[in-house]
Design a protein around this nucleic acid. Structure first.
Lengths: 328, 328
DNA sequence: TTGTAGGCGTTATCAT
DNA sequence: ATGATAACGCCTACAA
């Protein structure tokens, strides 16, 4: 900027003013703009951020992306939704991946360093350093997936896993199934626990502890393993709630190899309404998870905080309509 | 930093030295560190970046992520590979999504603003502003997926699409197939064109223009559409090269609905060796694409430039071994 | 309408 | 071993 001010023989103040839209004469503006393209001037965001205490950037922090990226199509949609909303508000979304302890540490530093004005955090764990940093710095933030239990004041946007599980299970019952099992996944996260609880609640007296297969992840492999397990324990099983569509797809495979037809012999339902659901044969009846909306909603929440609004609803649940297809 | 210097009655210079490891007495260091945790000091990266002209951050720019995230599992693996490599070198990967013209513009500004020291760019198009920015600023960079045609000096890491296509096609021929078609995708990108060219080369006199189905994207839906098309044009088809595993999975579906067995009636091969390949029934014979390595390799290239090394090999191809499974 | 000057939080070069 | 002090590139009163 110094050089361009010198080039046109004016002060840097004036140059700054054409950048930020202050009072400047038409001719001065023209000359300066000419010089800018001429000398290939590019504003330095780092300097601007330092002075303004604003970077116009918002972080999107994704935990455990390994499994998420590969088998859960949601994270991509959530990102896209968030990016679209931030983009509209002229903010840059920068997404940070935390896979290792080292990452966790570094990302925490990054968040507190003035490079971002706020953060969207998906599926953080209870004791993540990230949570502490955000809380300590009062960094405008929104959580997706896990409510941040040790920082109740941080806004959270998610879905009602219990209610959704109840609804889909009731659908299974309404189709006449009586020996209904569940492939429950990720019981170390509350989405997993909630879905199981919803299932149990909805079934009431029909619930049988023996018909729960407990698998680690929301992925295809876990689905085939879980279904085989269930079939072995109860050959007469006639309904299955898979904790995710990917799991349901795996279950479908296991059912096929066992010679069971779907939905003839057994009714099968999933969760997510991801691309899996329509790839399967038969297509899956499932719970629609509004991934894109989750992302854009979280972005809005952060943006509102940034613009000084105090966010009132600290805990926001998006609707998850049932999608009835062919598998049950 | 000012406050903590004041708190211990020392100059900010000394405080800075304990941060960066200069000469400082044990007692001074102890006092300062105590004050730091006490006052909850967090270093300001923006200021440091301004002074050092180094942010310790590298951008990961993903184009057209919509289709990539949803149907091409590669982008996730590439990201993870890049992140791992950068993480090891204590650099923060920040990934930027460009979906709209607006995004493109904003990302270009972001790249030139001093927030990042370099960039990894995946599947850029010829006339992306990004390319110009990188070239103009001489920003250390590496491209993945598309060689940056109008900036030949920017390093590129990728795979040999032509060679890989030749190899997998020859395998198809070696299994005795004679009426071999291809579901060719993304013919507006050079990966798409190269795969088609490899197919044509390998087939020689066996090549028949009529047996090429041209579909827009590397996704499942395109696969079923493409295969139906092929079956209609040539019911006697006995071999198919799908331009990606997702396409092959779709083709499998179309073949099943047409009552053709794989690999009995028709041999089918894919490309990518993504999770699709092992989910299918039968599992796919395909070309292994080293997604993770692509990412880490690109990261290394950028890191080398950052450490002052002049990168010699500006164009680097990673090996793509054939993976023989059950579909051909 | 334009120039001047101070400061945002760091690091680095001098002295001391 | 430590303290001044001058940048880094930008914005913004305040003055002119």
């Amino acid at each position: 900027m110094h050089d361009i001010a010198a080039a046109v023989g004016m002060s840097r103040g004036t140059v700054s003013r054409v950048l930020n839209g202050g009072y400047v004469s038409a001719e001065a503006r023209a000359a300066i703009e000419a010089a800018m393209t001429d000398l290939g001037y590019v504003p330095n965001n780092a300097a601007r951020a330092l002075k303004m205490r604003r970077s116009q950037a918002v972080a999107f922090v994704a935990h455990e992306p390994h499994s998420l990226f590969l088998d859960d199509p949601n994270i991509g949609s959530i990102m896209l939704g968030a990016n679209a909303a931030l983009s509209l508000a002229d903010h840059q979304m920068v997404s940070l991946v935390v896979e290792s302890a080292r990452d966790n540490e570094r990302v925490a530093r990054y968040l507190s360093g003035g490079f971002v004005d706020g953060a969207i955090v998906v599926s953080a764990r209870t004791n993540d350093p990230i949570i502490k940093v955000i809380s300590d710095l009062a960094l405008p933030a929104a959580f997706i997936g896990h409510p941040p239990d040790l920082a109740q004041h941080i806004p959270f946007v998610g879905i009602d896993n219990v209610g959704s599980a109840v609804a889909i299970t009731e659908h299974l019952v309404s189709t006449g199934r009586r020996r209904i099992g569940m492939i429950a996944a990720a019981l170390d996260r509350d989405s997993g626990i909630d879905r199981l609880n919803g299932f149990r609640d909805a079934l009431g007296p029909l619930f049988d502890e023996e018909l729960i297969a407990d698998v680690p992840h929301y992925d295809y492999g876990s689905g085939v393993k879980g279904m085989r397990d269930l079939l072995e324990r109860e050959p007469g099983i006639d309904g299955v709630f898979a904790a995710s569509d990917a799991i349901a797809a795996g279950a479908l495979e296991a059912l096929r190899e066992a010679g069971r037809s779907v939905p003839g012999d057994v009714g099968l339902v999933g969760f997510d309404d991801s691309t899996w659901a329509v790839r399967c044969q038969p297509q899956l009846t499932t719970v629609h998870q509004p991934a894109k909306e989750l992302g854009s909603c979280a972005a809005q929440v952060v943006l509102r905080q940034l613009s000084g609004e105090t966010v009132e609803t600290t805990r926001q649940l998006l609707p998850t309509p049932l999608v009835l297809r062919d598998s049950a």
